[in-house]
Design a protein around this nucleic acid. Structure first.
Lengths: 240, 240
DNA sequence: GAGCTAGAGTGGTACTTACCAGTAGGCCCG
DNA sequence: CGGGCCTACTGGTAAGTACCACTCTAGCTC
């Protein structure tokens, strides 16, 4: 068997296929796609399910399957113990590194990262891009000692957490994330190709490893028109 | 044959089964459960998939399937900024009813609520207030048949879900919620006492009862300076 | 006794087949 | 000419089977 799962290859094919489609356009029927891709219908449906869950496709019983109204939906719940469901293909994400280098932690950041204010912190600012379209600005800060030897190219594609685990032995385990509505300032607007004071999601995340040590502190700005956060809530018997 | 799909009945069986289990306890193997319940493995797996996605079960390849780390997972909780993790003290909330009355569902709302477009829908718009300060605008829409006899005063304070449960016998169980960054329009700005085009969180929520019937569809606008959303994310133990 | 190995049991992926359930459009009948 | 039905699509659910990948352990070998 080749590198990836068949289902993932089908999903990636569909991602390419819908990349230049307008919202609401139909995709071929499931049975046609099966024949064309040489896979069974359950396999194809599993791939489509992924894309439906992340909002890229919408099914309509008896009519067909259509591209969704928005490009990227980030589902926060939905996975075992609530781990990130990174929107479909990690491979379609690219990053432009805007800033990369060590800085002294300083008083505020030292508090966030539980370090001495003099400790060196690696600061990376990157513009996250999907299909040549800027989606978000990420400002990552982490103890420099943790990632000795990291170079900018490492952060241009692929999963940063996988890199942390496989190359630096950092076992990323949990994060606390807060999100709020905001608008873009002048710099952000220019980088994200939107007008100034455009709606945006501001996100702060503090990430910890298996021992509870703080691994990174991230502030991000996501384009408001390209991101929605989906969550599934379950009620017990009380709570209102 | 009972109401639901086979997959749903299997899922409900599993829900009962794990109800009094401790976190981390194993459930029977998939093949055993198939025999016991008289369903095929794909069907059983589809049911388990649902529970895994909502965090109630965790699969471990080669070992088994286990109950999840948390009992009831509330993936996301919104709290007024300034207070930490304090669940909104229901008592301090008041609402000013801006609109209250039945309207025909219409095509879009009918789709959301899974009703006929001609079916009567109760539409309630209320301004939510804490300490005399406006915090959010809620536009609630629900099948009128569900809440016959509801009057505006019922919705000025207290928990609406408790009211649904205790007076109308509606067992609210789950919701899917999406959130996005937006800005206030003229009306919203006036009601919320903020300038026009002020940052705000737009929230859409579809709520279901224990049988999966849609109970309400809500669109809300929260003041961006008063609300942040905090979520805790947990990552799987790595595999490679 | 320590270490390795084979096998049984687990979940993971995938195929095939079958039938149910909505939708839309053309055909037939009134 | 108009309205209702019928058919050929669409996605939705389900069964059954096969085989792969991983985990654990009991038993064998050294």
């Amino acid at each position: 068997m080749r590198a990836g799962l068949k289902r993932d290859r089908v999903r990636d094919f569909l991602l390419d296929f819908i990349a230049d489609k307008l919202p609401g356009e139909a995709i071929p029927s499931e049975r046609d796609l099966c024949k064309e891709l040489g896979v069974s219908r359950p396999t194809l449906r599993a791939a489509i399910d992924d894309l439906v869950r992340s909002g890229l496709l919408v099914r309509e019983h008896g009519r067909g399957t259509f591209t969704g109204p928005h490009r990227v939906t980030q589902a926060l719940s939905a996975t075992p113990s609530g781990s990130f469901y990174v929107p479909p293909a990690e491979g379609t994400w690219l990053s432009r590194i805007l800033e990369f280098g060590p800085v002294p932690a300083g008083p505020q950041l030292a508090t966030r990262l539980r370090l001495s204010p003099a400790a060196p912190v690696l600061r990376v600012v990157r513009l996250r891009v999907v299909d040549d379209e800027p989606m978000a600005i990420e400002r990552i800060q982490l103890p420099h000692a943790l990632v000795d030897g990291l170079v900018p190219a490492d952060m241009e594609s692929g999963s940063f957490y996988r890199l942390l685990r496989e190359r630096f032995g950092v076992d990323v385990r949990s994060a606390v994330q807060t999100m709020e509505a905001t608008v873009t300032d002048e710099t952000e607007a220019r980088l994200l190709h939107v007008p100034q004071h455009f709606p945006a999601l501001g996100v702060e995340r503090t990430t910890r490893d298996a021992d509870g040590r703080i691994v990174e502190f991230v502030r991000s700005i996501y384009r408001g028109d390209r991101y929605r956060v989906t969550s599934e809530l379950h009620f017990d018997a009380e709570s209102g």
